[in-house]
Amino acid sequence: MSDANNTPLTLVVLVKHVPDVQFDRHISQDSLRLDRSESVLSELDEYAVEAALAIVEDNGGFAAGHQVIAATVGPSSSANSVRKALQMGASSGLHLNDDAIAGSDTVATSKALAALVSHVPNVDLVLTGMASTDAETSVIAAQLAERLGFAQLTHAQSVEFDAAQREVTIHREHGDQRLTLKAALPAVLSVTDQANNPRYPNFKGIMAAKKKSIEEVDLAAVGLSAAEVGTEGSTTSVLAADKRPSREAGTIITDSGEAGIALVDFLAEQKLI
């Protein structure tokens, strides 16, 4: 084994502060932006945090000098999601907070995230969830791979990390195939909700997180100008966002032995059969 094998790992997990899916979510008609009160750590990012922690634990733990940096781009409240990742066990936080970022689409957001990742020296692996639970575009991981020139390993249902070979192997679905894919570090890895079972922050984790630091940086610190992000740096422009009439409950019947027939009557009425 060479010395390189003992080099501590630097893992960056991207976390996003999103409106809680359990509540009604709204898009403001003035700004055409999502109302971000009642926000929490995107549930799907917990799988990415868990995957990073598992890699560290399988490779000698934090005692070996590995780092899991929970990083986010967003307004001040986003620090709450970084804090949650720290409670789960991430070692430190990194928060790009700048008013000019508001209104960024995926192209602009991935630019900001790439600059933030590049702010961290010697990153081995960037981890993300399979999608954010608000925009649900599921494209940021691929855009980061493109921008950073890292290998793209996305939608992993399971992850094997080989620190000695500096390689990551994943399983993913692809159309009618199940694939096993492998790439050398550095890489961008997105994990699905099949990949693991995220841990809950325990009392010890919550106490420990109070002592962990979150470094806050602005655009200038990561080498970007205001015009490169926000609406100006975006390639899409949203013209309107209209609430669809919500679905209403239709007829409800209780089965008294003939409901299967009633079901078929309904299909026939609606010309579905």
Binding site: R247, A249, I252, I253, T254, A259, G260, L263, F266
Partner: peptide, 25 residues
């Protein structure tokens, strides 16, 4: 809350009955 037709019942009874009725028709 979002169903156009809601059937309160046991799927093990309702589904086979519906399948048989479709085939009959």
């Amino acid at each position: 809350e979002i169903a156009d037709l809601g059937i309160v019942g046991d799927l093990a009874k309702v589904l086979p009955q519906a399948a048989a009725e479709i085939r009959r028709r």
